[in-house]
Amino acid sequence: MMELVCPAGTPAALRAAVEAGAHAVYCGFADETNARNFPGLNFSRDEMAAGIAHAHARGAKVLVAINTFPRAGEAGLWHRAVADAAAAGADAVILADVGLLAHAAGAHPGLRLHLSVQAAAANADAINFYAETFGVRRVVLPRVLTVAEIAAINRETDCETEVFVFGGLCVMAEGRCSLSSYATGLSPNMNGVCSPASHVDYAERDGAQEARLGGFLIHRTPRGMSVPYPTLCKGCFTAPGGAQKAQTGHIFEDPVSLDATDLIPALEKAGVRALKIEGRQRSRAYVAQVVQAFRAAVEAAGSGAPMPHGILARLTEGQAATTGAYAKTWR
């Protein structure tokens, strides 16, 4: 059976994930070392140790995401995070930066290393480099690959592969996107915040809800319509049309979430070892419902039964789902 890797932004969400059937839970410390550095979220050192003990007592693993890129002169914060995760008994750390990978491989040789999606390793040569150089055991593949491309990668590497199957869909080259940095001055890749809440403003105007990021209007949602996250990549913009009429729409991607439930058997056949659910910023209610549904789906795939359907749509951004790049024709 493929491993189900589930998100937890808080100790309560971790317990909910384990109870709902997660094989592994991923989470991070409450600082800039992880890519979900949102207010009120994440784990203190004591909470992490307690969470790992809770998960281990119930047969689940904990993977600690330290997946932002250390800033020059401040690598100590990231090094301490790796050391503290190892001391707390983490089953693996999820890293993106080559310098941090080198540090972890040298200073903590017994610690299992996973390569974060933030590293954007999208071909077998890149993955094999990480595996051979740092001993990386698993790579989280970026969300830009088709199922056929994932199968091709798995034929050329012994490194385990993990893919996203549900949740918020990052459509850019992960770890390299600067859209949010441009609008806010804070980096998703170094400060751990895409569309930081401190720079988001919602206001009701003329019967519609307006969302601004860093002062830029990115959504105007009429009352009664589904409201998206305030991310630039899924913003609604007007593009000059030159000689033609200007066009207004979702220039990069529609505000939809990933749901690859139907593709689970194909992903298993493609050699994928683990399935990942996005959403460390979500509540324990989301975690419990999504994990329960995907545990059932993974078990169904393992026994050749049809995939269960349709219960998670209202939890998704835009309340609509896509299979993303796995089976997509890009426009």
Partner: peptide, 21 residues
């Protein structure tokens, strides 16, 4: 913990204003 806050936000059942953080 029955409903997810973001899902309530997506559907418009909850709206927020002021200091989002």
């Amino acid at each position: 913990g029955v409903e997810d806050g973001d899902a309530l936000f997506f559907s418009g059942a909850l709206t927020i204003s002021g200091d989002t953080a």
